[in-house]
Each structure stands twice: as structure tokens, then as C-alpha cells.
Write a protein that binds this DNA or RNA. Structure first.
Lengths: 162, 162
DNA sequence: TCAAGATTGATGCAGGTGCATTTAGTGCTG
DNA sequence: CAGCACTAAATGCACCTGCATCAATCTTGA
């Protein structure tokens, strides 16, 4: 009950850590240089904009984004401070609330997608054929044990989940 | 000059972010639960222990670990505080210094490798065949544009580079 | 040889994150 | 309906990180 990982597994582990860090840093930098906020903001705005009436319970957002509760709470604080979302009270459960994306939030999300998608293409897309990207997905999925749905169509907007 | 990433590339991007986060968190948690310090400490100790006489210039460590200068400086502070390394003056360049691993540092590094390697096996190794691990390495390397050497032999100890 | 510039390492500050706890409200059970 | 366990969200604290900057030293080239 103390089996050692194979050399190959260890190599894969190292690659996974290094490459993710590099690619993420590169994409975050591109976004920052274009004057945009961090990716986490985009993710939250995307989730909100996709929600039925542009609003979600914080606890939903938390589950979608796979980040801890306090982290969600503070992310919402920042979005609200910037006027990208508003907190609305939840009448059926007075402990809770709704967070609703504002028009300004929707605009930012759309503008960010331009820079974001360009960064994905630059740091991932153009380095892999579509077949290889699919292969990579398959291998990664095995590690993550299914991490969710396929990506969306036409408007196609991707959300990571740091 | 604004080509969009393919659906496949976007999916790969998302997987890369999510899976790395999950696997890293899982490994860090295992280490923490076993009462060990963070992975970054292990990486630093490993680099030091591999160095010719167990000592390196901070600037070397920085390059090995691919972390920023100030981060290295503070990591060394912590190692020194815990008695895992000592700072020694550098006579040939009075701006600089050497950081030398202590016996206690070497012991910790070895003990950590037990828990660390078990975690790699648990969260990566046992989910992929060796051939798949190799394929994954190949695909990831294409994104990172060569991220270094193969892993070490017998004593085999892996270092990421967050 | 000496001033300009590069390099090494540390640090103050602002902000982000994890952890534990708090506050408030819900809902089940006896 | 009283009590108790549970869930939603916020927050105080410690620590970590990034950025900018500093002080000290080295290198260089006129």
C-alpha cells in the first residue's frame, strides 16, 4: 500500500503543473495588459449572464465555479463595488440573496471574451491540432474524473474553474 | 488577426485549468494532512539537496524553480526560520550569498518524498497507463514548449514548478 | 578611474486566500 | 412550539503574493 508512481506518471505530474502555470500566467497577463480584470471575474460574469434571469444565489455560483464559499462572497463584493453586479434580497429564504449581473457587467463579459478567446487561441489553440486537443481532453478527463459539460456553441465562451 | 480558438482548443484549456487545480489541491491536501509543509518547500529542498555541495545562490534557485525573485527570497526566509537551510555569505560576490541545506532539511525532503510520491501515484499514476502518461507528457510539452528534463532515476524525486 | 548601468537580494504596501468563527435564518423532531 | 442541527453568507486573522522600489555591489566602457 505504498506503491511508487512510475517515472512516466511523475513526468506527467510535473508537466501538468508546469504547463498549466505557464499557460495560465500567459493568458492572465494578456488579459491584464488589455486592461481587464482577472479571469475569475470573467468566470463569474459568464455564469451570471448564462443564468435564467441573469441572477444566481451565491451558493450556486460557488458550485459552478468550484471555489470556496468565502471566496465567492468576496468576489461578489468586488463585482458589486465595480457596478458589475448587484445584490438582491431573496424573499423565499431570508438568509440568502440573489446576485444579478448588470448591463455593465454583461458588456464587460462580452468585451473580455474577445481578449480571452484570442489568448486561448494564442497559447493553446495554435499549438495543437483539433485532434490533439481532443486527445488532450480525453487524457485530462481521466485525471479529473469528469469535470463537466462540453463547451457552448456559436457564442462559445469558455470558463475555467481555478 | 483575431482568429477564434476551436471548440476543441477551448475544451482543452478548460480541462487543463480544472484538472490541474484539482490534482494539485488533492496532492497538497495529502501532504498537509500528513503534517508536511507546502510543496514549494519540497521543491526548494530538492533543488538544494541536488546541488553540488548542498548549496545554491538564491538566483539559481529562482531559475530552477521558475518563481519570482521576491518569492525565492521569502521562501528562503521560511526555510531558514525552520532550520532547514542556512544562509552563508558569498565571498566572491558580496551582493550575493549561498543557501545551504541542513541535515534537518535533507531529512525532511526525504520524508516528504514518501508522502509526495504516494500522492502522485494516488492522484495521477493509478489513473493512467504508462503509455497514456507518456502521451499526456507529449501533448503538454507542446503547450509549454519544452519545460525541461526527464525525471530522475532510482531515487526518483519529482519537482513541479508552480 | 570613475560614472552609468546592470545585478543581487530585501522589503513596504496593497491586495488575495485559507481557516475558523460568527450571525442569521430554516426546518426537522419530539 | 421548543430545541437542535443545518445551511447561507460574512468576516477577523494570519499568511502569501505581486509590484515597485531600495540599497549594496559588480561591471563596463569612455
Amino acid at each position: 500500500m505504498k506503491r511508487k508512481p512510475s517515472t512516466e506518471a511523475t513526468a506527467a505530474w510535473i508537466r501538468l503543473m508546469r504547463v498549466q502555470t505557464r499557460v495560465l500566467d500567459a493568458v492572465e497577463q494578456d488579459l491584464k495588459k488589455a486592461g481587464f480584470p482577472p479571469l475569475a471575474w470573467y468566470d463569474a460574469l459568464l455564469e451570471l449572464s448564462r443564468a435564467p434571469s441573469g441572477e444566481l444565489r451565491p451558493v450556486e455560483l460557488e458550485r459552478q465555479m468550484l471555489i470556496p464559499q468565502y471566496s465567492t462572497s468576496r468576489l461578489i463584493d468586488r463585482l458589486v463595488d465595480e457596478g458589475l453586479a448587484v445584490r438582491r434580497e431573496c424573499k423565499v429564504d431570508k438568509r440568502g440573496q440573489f446576485v444579478e449581473i448588470t448591463e455593465s457587467g454583461r458588456e464587460l463579459q462580452k468585451k473580455m471574451w474577445g481578449a480571452y478567446s484570442a489568448a486561448i487561441e494564442k497559447h493553446v489553440g495554435c499549438k495543437l491540432s483539433e485532434a490533439d486537443a481532443t486527445r488532450l481532453c480525453g487524457l485530462l478527463d481521466r485525471l479529473g474524473c469528469s469535470c463537466g459539460e462540453m463547451t457552448s456553441p456559436a457564442t462559445g465562451e469558455g470558463a475555467p474553474a481555478r
